[in-house]
């Protein structure tokens, strides 16, 4: 169901969408059942003059079954949900498929730095490619990432990949993704990181082999134009208020003027 709202563009995003669907079907059944019972009882058993309510304690065996059978059914459905979830979770977070490329993602207040290990697949060598707020990846190749944070906790989030992972200062977290659709998408910081949390975006561009090489050449010879900036420019975004500096008309000033 998620794919109706946002593109599904990585190898495991389909799994997450399917898990969402499975859970939706299960809890949708319960929701309709329980909600229906609530509405039906409310309408059916309205007060009528001279009619007394029934006396049901709910403690006899013949009565407790009405909560116990649904209760067992809930347990059975829970087991299904847990099983489905763990299969997907193990696939995403607990297994690491063989890598084609290695990148390092560094979050800092308030931008992303990306270091691509380049052809040799080793970080911190001469052929590393460093970009800021712009990540370029090749379609259908498995990327391993090492996630770091310079100052506070950030969260590397790519909604189209269904990928989110906290970046903790002082630690390196490993993960992977494999893009399946080309295009340019949002990178978010999904953990509160201070004043500029709302501007901490980026762009991930999934290339075909040819356009990737072309972009790398552009980055190397300096003729490169940031995809992030381009995306921000082409969409007609919402009216901005970043041009205003902070609060000449702030809350404190406002209240101070009242007192």
């Amino acid at each position: 169901m998620i794919e109706y709202f946002i593109l599904s563009a990585s190898s495991f995003s389909g799994d997450i969408d399917n898990l969402f669907l499975v859970i939706t079907l299960i809890i949708g059944f319960w929701f309709i059942l329980v909600f229906g019972a609530l509405v039906y009882f409310t309408l059916k058993f309205r007060r009528k003059d001279g009619v007394k309510a029934e006396y049901i304690t709910g403690e006899k065996h013949s009565e407790t079954k009405w909560t116990h059978y649904p209760h067992y059914a809930v347990i059975a459905m829970d087991v299904v949900i847990i099983a489905a979830n763990i299969i997907v979770w193990v696939n995403i977070k607990q297994t690491l498929p063989p890598k084609d490329n290695l990148i390092r993602v560094i979050g800092q207040q308030w931008s992303w730095s990306f270091v691509d290990a380049g052809p040799d697949g080793v970080l911190d060598t001469a052929d590393d490619i460093t970009t800021v707020n712009d990540l370029h990846v090749k379609v259908d190749e498995t990327y391993h990432f090492e996630l770091q944070a310079r100052d506070v906790i950030h969260n590397f989030s790519v909604p189209v990949f269904r990928l989110r992972q906290d970046a903790l200062p002082g630690r390196t977290i490993k993960g992977w993704f494999k893009p399946t659709n080309t295009g340019s998408f949002d990178i978010q910081c999904a953990e509160m990181c201070g004043y500029g949390h709302g501007i901490m975006g980026g762009a991930i561009t999934v290339h075909t082999k040819e356009s990737y090489d072309e972009t790398i050449v552009q980055i190397k010879n300096g003729t490169y134009e940031s995809h992030y900036q381009k995306r921000m420019g082409t969409k007609t975004p919402l009216p901005s208020n970043t041009s205003h500096t902070e609060g000449h008309n702030s809350f404190a000033v406002l209240l101070a003027s009242i007192f």
């Binding site: 309205r46 009619v51 309510a53 029934e54 649904p70 209760h71």
Partner: peptide, 22 residues
């Protein structure tokens, strides 16, 4: 979810056969 669901069932079962005044 299991105890909470059961609690919810109990509450809704309480409405059954009642004389509900809204």
């Amino acid at each position: 979810s299991i105890p909470l669901a059961e609690m919810m069932f109990s509450y809704i079962a309480t409405l059954y056969g009642g004389s509900i005044e809204l």
